[in-house]
Amino acid sequence: EETGVRVELAEEDDGEKIAIKLWLRIEDIKKLKGKYKDNEAIEFSFDLERDVPEDVAQEMVESGYVCEGDHKTMAKAIKDRVSLIKRK
């Protein structure tokens, strides 16, 4: 499903790190509610043992990086990427 958002690794995952750096990349602004630039990327750290995707997305909303209306879309994108990383 195309959401307009993609999360990718910002650094090589060696399988050892607990906290990883990720990029939340805006790919299609028409599919989102907030005002973003095409190909805008937000770099953030995610602790694989402690962080919760919904909470991280909420922090982005509170910091003004993400529109409240896009919270669920961002949280799902983060959750999907993190579950792929954890499965390795």
Score class of each variant (00 low, 15 high):
Leu24Ser: 11
Gln58Thr: 12
Ile29Ala: 15
Asn39Val: 05
Glu62Ser: 12
Leu22Asp: 06
Met60Leu: 15
Ile29Gly: 15
Gly15Ser: 09
Glu59Met: 12
Ser63Ala: 15
Met60Tyr: 01
Ile26Cys: 08
Leu84Glu: 11
Asp80Lys: 10
Arg87Gly: 05
Asp13Val: 08
Leu9Asn: 04
Val61Cys: 04
Ser45Thr: 15
Tyr65Arg: 14
Glu62Pro: 00
Asp28Pro: 00
Leu9Ser: 06
Arg6Ala: 07
Glu54Arg: 02
Asp13Thr: 06
Val5Tyr: 11
Gly4Lys: 09
Val7Ile: 12
Ile26Pro: 14
Ile18Ala: 15
Leu24Ile: 08
Asp28Cys: 07
Ile78Leu: 03
Leu84His: 11
Ser83Leu: 06
Ser83Phe: 04
Val7Thr: 05
Glu62Asp: 15
Asp51Asn: 05
Thr3Asn: 11
Glu62His: 11
Asp51Ile: 01
Glu49Tyr: 09
Trp23Cys: 15
Met60Val: 00
Arg25Leu: 13
Asp13Tyr: 15
His71Asn: 05
Ala57Arg: 02
Leu32Asn: 07
Asp80Val: 00
Asp28His: 07
Glu8Pro: 05
Val56Ile: 12
Glu49Val: 06
Ala10Cys: 06
Val56Asp: 02
Val5Cys: 08
Val61Leu: 02
Ile18Trp: 08
Val82Lys: 00
Lys86Asn: 09
Arg25Asp: 09
Val7His: 02
Ser63His: 11
Asp38Val: 13
Lys21Glu: 01
Lys72Phe: 09
Lys79Cys: 05
Lys17Ser: 14
Tyr36Ile: 04
Ile18Gly: 15
Arg6Thr: 12
Gly69Pro: 07
Lys30Asp: 11
Gly34Trp: 04
Glu59Phe: 07
Leu32Trp: 04
Thr73His: 06
Asp13Pro: 10
Ile29Cys: 15
Ile42His: 06
Lys33Gln: 11
Glu40Ser: 12
Gly15Ala: 08
Ile26Val: 10
Lys72Ser: 14
Val56Asn: 00
Ile26Met: 10
Gly4Ile: 11
Lys72Thr: 12
Ile18Asp: 14
Leu32Glu: 07
Val52Gln: 10
Glu11Gly: 05
Phe46Cys: 01
Asp51Cys: 01
Ser63Leu: 13
Glu27Asp: 14
Asp70Pro: 01
Gly64Lys: 03
Phe44Val: 05
Lys17Asn: 12
Lys17Gln: 13
Ala10Trp: 03
Gln58Gly: 06
Trp23Glu: 15
Ala10Leu: 09
Glu43Gly: 10
Lys76Gln: 13
Val56Trp: 05
Met74Phe: 12
Ala57Glu: 01
Val5Trp: 13
Glu59Ser: 13
Phe44Thr: 04
Tyr36Glu: 05
Ile20His: 07
Arg6Gln: 07
Leu32Arg: 08
Ala75Phe: 03
Asp14Lys: 08
Glu12Thr: 12
Leu22Lys: 11
Ala41Gly: 08
Met74Gly: 02
Leu84Ser: 12
Thr73Arg: 10
Arg25Trp: 08
Glu43Trp: 04
Tyr65Asp: 09
Gln58Ala: 12
Lys37Tyr: 06
Glu62Phe: 05
Pro53Lys: 04
Val5Met: 15
Lys35His: 12
Lys21Ser: 03
Glu16Thr: 13
Glu68Val: 07
Ile18Val: 14
Leu84Cys: 12
Ile18Glu: 14
Arg25Glu: 07
Ser45Gly: 07
Asp38Asn: 13
Glu49Ser: 12
Arg25Gln: 10
Asp80Ser: 07
Asp70Arg: 01
Val61Thr: 03
Ile26Gln: 13
Lys86Gly: 03
Trp23Lys: 15
Asp70Cys: 03
Gly15Lys: 10
Arg50Gly: 05
Arg81Tyr: 12
